[in-house]
Simulated assay, not measured.
Amino acid sequence: MPALLSVTSDQLNVWMVAFLWPFVRMLALISTAPVFSEGAVPRSARIALAVLLTLVVAPTLGALPAVPLFSAGGLWILIQQVLIGTAMGFSMRMVFAMVQAAGEYVGLQMGLSFASFFDPTSGGNTTVNARLLNIFAILIFLATDGHLMLIMTLAESFRTLPIADAPLAASGWFVLVLAGAQIISGGLMLALPLIASLLTLNLAMGIMNRVSPQFSIFSVGFPITLLAGIAMLMLLMPYLAPFLEPRFAAGLASIAALLQGLRP
């Protein structure tokens, strides 16, 4: 009779860690990265994508730490992979947060700050303009193959920052903090043309109200501001893709700098 297949506990541990640790990093990124973490994407699809990527990438990884999975060291490595994947996804999400910040600034100037609804992506109320610009940013991200570049960066992250039981360096987290400053500055740069135009329009209507008191600024000011804001948004749309493409590249570069900074 042929001998039965026997698997030792050490072999089982090697197989489990060879799949589980890369899977956790990939699932953490997919759960936080833009496009993949949208509310319209089912959780089962995210898990299936993470499993598929793990099956492709795991055989290419080098030797993993000889640490039992069910131990303090194995739990520490698991937590590290969650932190690394989440930080990578958060770095790219900052670009989309910049776009949403620009939408908030624009909506405030147009008088649409009260026209808000629940956004499942951010988990809070956002203005109509912020949601609209975020949808355009997602479409541009997909059109420029940003999602494929993000997956490639994820696969390369195992070479830049291999799975190890050594503690992560603190300098990488400072890179993430500095990248967060781009949310306000980039959002202001994107919304600046429209803010300047509406500010000039409001100044002109204020002068007209002083010159001609019969001109009721309160009755006609809101519709004029709203129509002017919509017209400026139409003029702004063709320049949105050239503005965002370098920001997407900067987001990927921020991920690379984050991984380099986290290396022990």
Rank of each mutant, 00 (worst) to 15 (best):
G89T: 05
L64V: 00
P120M: 08
F96I: 11
I79N: 03
F117K: 05
Q109C: 01
F70V: 03
Q80W: 01
A72M: 04
T121F: 12
F70W: 03
V67W: 02
R93M: 05
L69M: 14
G111S: 08
V82C: 07
G73S: 05
A63H: 04
A115W: 04
V82H: 10
L112H: 10
F117D: 10
T121Y: 07
M98E: 08
V95H: 06
A63G: 03
L108H: 12
T121N: 12
F114L: 14
G62P: 01
S91W: 00
V106T: 14
I84D: 08
G123L: 10
G62H: 01
S116F: 09
F117H: 08
R93V: 02
V95E: 13
A101D: 12
G89N: 01
F70M: 06
L75T: 15
L108Q: 15
Q109I: 01
V95T: 14
Q100F: 01
V95L: 04
Q109V: 07
A87K: 01
A87P: 07
Q81R: 09
A63K: 11
P68G: 02
L69R: 04
F118I: 12
G85Q: 00
M88A: 04
L61A: 00
A66D: 15
G123S: 15
Y105A: 05
F117R: 13
V99E: 05
A97V: 12
E104H: 05
T121V: 14
A72S: 10
A115R: 06
G103C: 04
G107H: 08
Y105F: 08
P120W: 11
S116K: 11
A115L: 14
A72E: 15
L75N: 12
Q81T: 11
S116I: 12
L61P: 00
P65A: 00
A115D: 13
M110I: 10
S116M: 13
G103L: 13
L64P: 07
M98F: 00
V95W: 10
V82N: 10
I79G: 09
A87Q: 03
F70A: 05
E104A: 05
M94G: 11
G74M: 08
A66S: 08
P65T: 02
